[in-house]
Nucleic acid binder design. Structure first.
Lengths: 145, 145
DNA sequence: CCTTGACTTCGAGTCGACTCGAAGGCGTAC
DNA sequence: GTACGCCTTCGAGTCGACTCGAAGTCAAGG
């Protein structure tokens, strides 16, 4: 079998490079049935990925980075295989995940507000020279600084 | 020993309620030396938390929810015990964490953009009736929908 | 033919932060 | 005095998603 593949198809090393997912992870994803279409094999039994699968992996990657579980991705992939009839359920899954992502954003933003507040407090402290009032309680600034 | 404590001090059940952290978690945090000041005990050996400790736990909670590790929180708590001399290092820790939170926000936002894009696509699909063109590839819309 | 290197399968190990449950102590209410 | 409920310590278990490593296969290059 050829050492290079006709362009839209590639082996695991390139798929790994393209997606930022390790080869181990790519195999794991196949085993977990996360692909919409089966991963093909060449004569040597090596995996061959299509461009479409790379795009799908990039989507998976975004879903993962926003906290979607492999369970949910698997379900979504199943629905993809189900064709147009499953569009409604796919939509629902995405809507649900969208809400989770918004919740996470809000949570992070709330934390960021606290962090910034403390940073500002410390910046002021440090500007005041090596002041010894590090333990004061200003308004809205209960001690755990 | 009294069944209720003088207001600013409370036992684990109330501390749990106030902070949203389970009693198990509160004990675990003490064991992990996450508190700035030692958790006191009453005559029966029960933990007694101060209002200040509740405030600190609320801060820890925000740090945790934004992904700060217990290791980093422990370090921060140590620095708190070190007094004013450690303000600079505390500032640095917060700055570093701030950046991580901003990175997470950006990552989530990028994922959200993809999700919204797909949601809009599906919404359109569904509006067009049960169209059978679910597999089309529009511009900027490579197939893994 | 032999080496090289990219690949294969398989099973086991890792990670942090909880989370749980068993066994027991203490003080109050009845 | 005994039942109750809240607390204690301790050690073990859980979770998902990797991550690793051993042992083996295959094709091409020299």
């Amino acid at each position: 079998m050829p050492t290079t593949l006709t362009p839209p198809r590639m082996r695991i090393a390139e798929a790994s490079e393209r997606t930022g997912l390790s080869g181990h992870t790519l195999r794991y994803y196949e085993q977990e049935r996360l692909f919409v279409n089966p991963v093909e094999r060449d004569g040597a039994g090596h995996r061959v990925f299509s461009e479409e699968q790379i795009q799908w992996l990039l989507v998976c990657s975004k879903m993962r980075s926003s906290g979607m579980s492999l369970d949910h991705i698997r379900r979504y992939a199943e629905l993809m295989r189900g064709g147009p009839a499953t569009v409604g359920e796919r939509y629902e899954i995405l809507r649900e995940h969208e809400q989770k992502v918004r919740d996470q954003l809000a949570e992070l933003q709330a934390a960021l507000d606290v962090i910034e507040h403390k940073i500002a407090f410390y910046a002021e402290q440090m500007a005041e020279g090596t002041a010894d009032q590090a333990w004061r309680n200003g308004p809205n600034c209960s001690s755990p600084i």
